[in-house]
C-alpha cells in the first residue's frame, strides 16, 4: 500500500462531483416526489371512481419505474437526458436519471409517512371546515414531518449508491473513481479512500437525518 503517490486533486474533484450529484438530484427528487406522494395518498382515499383510476395508473407507473434496476434505467434514459439537459455525461448528465430513479421511491416513502397520520386528526380538521389544501399543508405535512424527514434521509442514502453507478455512463464521482482505479487498474489505495469517503458521507447523512427526526418527534 502506498498512499503517498495518491492523486489528491482527483479525489477532491470526485468528492465534489458526488456531492453535487446528491445535492441537486436530492433537491429535484424532493420537488417531484413530495407532490407525487401527496397525490398518491389523496387519490387512494377519494370517493370518486375516476380519481381512484388515476391512482391505479400513477401507482403502476411508480412501480414500473421502481422495478427497473437503476443502472439499466440510466442507460435507457440517455436520449431523454440529452433532450432535457443537453448532455448525458458529467454531473449534469446524471441528474435526470438520478431524479427519475429516486423520485418514485421517495414518493412511496411520502405516501407511507402520510398514512401514519392519525385519521382522527384529519377528521377533526375536516369537522372544523378545513379544505383539502389546508389539510395537506396544516395537518398532513406537519404531523408526518418526522416520517418525511426519515424518508428524505433514506432517499439521500439511496442516491449515494445510485451516484456510484452513474460513473458507468460517464458521470464521475467517488463511485466511478473506486471502480476505475480499484477494479480496472488494481489501485487498491484509491478504492479504499473512495469507499471511506462514501461511508463517511452516508454516516453523516444518516446522523443528521436521525437527529432531525428526533427533534421533530412529539409523540
Amino acid at each position: 500500500m502506498n498512499f503517498a503517490d495518491l492523486n489528491w486533486q482527483e479525489m477532491m474533484d470526485a468528492t465534489v462531483a458526488t456531492l453535487k450529484m446528491i445535492v441537486f438530484s436530492g433537491l429535484f427528487t424532493i420537488i417531484l416526489g413530495l407532490p407525487l406522494g401527496i397525490l398518491l395518498y389523496l387519490c387512494e382515499r377519494s370517493n370518486s371512481i375516476v380519481i381512484r383510476v388515476i391512482y391505479s395508473v400513477l401507482s403502476l407507473l411508480v412501480n414500473i419505474l421502481r422495478s427497473v434496476p437503476f443502472i439499466i434505467l440510466m442507460v435507457a434514459l440517455i436520449p431523454f437526458t440529452k433532450e432535457i439537459v443537453g448532455t448525458s455525461i458529467g454531473v449534469l448528465g446524471t441528474i435526470p436519471p438520478l431524479v427519475i430513479g429516486a423520485a418514485p421511491f421517495f414518493a412511496r416513502l411520502v405516501e407511507t409517512a402520510l398514512r401514519e397520520v392519525d385519521r382522527g386528526v384529519i377528521e377533526a380538521a375536516q369537522g372544523m371546515g378545513a379544505s383539502t389544501n389546508q389539510i395537506v399543508m396544516r395537518v398532513l405535512l406537519p404531523e408526518a414531518r418526522p416520517g418525511l424527514i426519515a424518508g428524505v434521509t433514506i432517499t439521500l442514502v439511496t442516491l449515494v449508491s445510485y451516484t456510484a453507478m452513474a460513473g458507468q455512463v460517464g458521470g464521475g464521482g467517488l463511485g466511478d473513481l473506486a471502480i476505475r482505479y480499484g477494479y480496472l487498474r488494481y489501485e487498491t489505495e484509491i478504492m479504499l479512500i473512495s469507499i471511506t469517503f462514501i461511508v463517511i458521507l452516508v454516516q453523516l447523512l444518516q446522523m443528521a437525518g436521525d437527529r432531525l427526526v428526533k427533534y421533530f418527534t412529539r409523540k
Binding site: 392519525d118 382522527g120 386528526v121 377528521e123 377533526a124 369537522g127 372544523m128 395537518v139 406537519p142 404531523e143 414531518r145 421533530f216 412529539r218 409523540k219
Partner: peptide
C-alpha cells in the same frame, strides 16, 4: 366537535 380520543395535532 370534540372526540373520545381528543384528535389534537401532536406536532
Amino acid at each position: 366537535m370534540i372526540f373520545q380520543h381528543f384528535n389534537l395535532l401532536s406536532s
